[in-house]
Amino acid sequence: MRRYALPLIACLILAGLVLVGILGSRFTVYITMRVMILAIFALGYNLLLGRTGLLSFGHAAFFAGGSYGAALFFIHVNRHPLLCIAAGIALAIVLSVIIGFFCVRHTEIYFAMLTLAFGMMVFSLIWNMREITGGDDGLVGIARAPISLWLVSISLAKPSHYYFLVMAFFMVSLALVYVIRQSPLGLILSGIRENDKRIEFAGISLKNYRLAAFVISGGFAGLAGALATFLNSNTTPFSAHWTHSAEPVLVSLIGGLQTFMGPVVGSLIYVVLREVIERFTQNWMLWFGIILLIIIMGFRGGVVGSMVSLLGLKNRPDERSEGVSA
């Protein structure tokens, strides 16, 4: 059964997303885009947290790298959206290679603090280098030019058109992360999480493979950032702030750190719940904090992990449910 479950789920997701794109109201389309962008951020991030066991508080910097990379490319070089997005991802990857090079020397709390420091350095640069980044105003007026490929030109100006570009990137990210999780590299990263002292004695360079996970997740963060820039038509320095780095952590945790779909489900819950709660009260953080408490105290497998064990859908009877091992 499991053999067919994944293609089936993928088709269902795709069908659902296409339906939303065609039939959904403007608001639904906008919210779904936000879910998908956050999910791309979190999917990549969870390769680092859930898979490799490293807690980064600096990935907002790579999100911002993608965001500002795309925007700067748009302003100074070329307005083609795909090129802008590629530029954003490239900047995010360059940043994550540089920052990762230093950060992967440490683990646990020291890694978290180091990524926090580097992330905040990026934030302070964006904040203070007004001439380039627009400072606290960010860069504005990042319009969605049509995508021209050879003979055809597809307009993205309407949100419902841009939606399908985001959806395409989301599905590709989903597939990529799935493939990486099933690949030899995916197993090595699990090994690093499980026992980073032994992995070197298995002939694996701990630093290089940690860096690989760091850069891959940084690349996905960059993609998310670039897509967000075109969604909002602007950039904001707060996309680099550490509080923004907490978002993929929360989302992955809510969905389930050890599950593939966890970050996606978590993103959906995070964005939708926030919208719903904010309709009734100003205090969505209060409710969100309580949900977080409940998950940490009682459902550490996250929503997906808990559902899987509740429904007895585990593919291995002895698979972990406790999340990242201590």
Binding site: A112, A246, L292, L293, I296, R300, V324, S325
Partner: peptide
């Protein structure tokens, strides 16, 4: 538990 759980618990508060 592992570090993320401890940090996020305090973050929930």
């Amino acid at each position: 538990l592992a570090l993320p759980y401890q940090l996020l618990l305090t973050f929930a508060f």
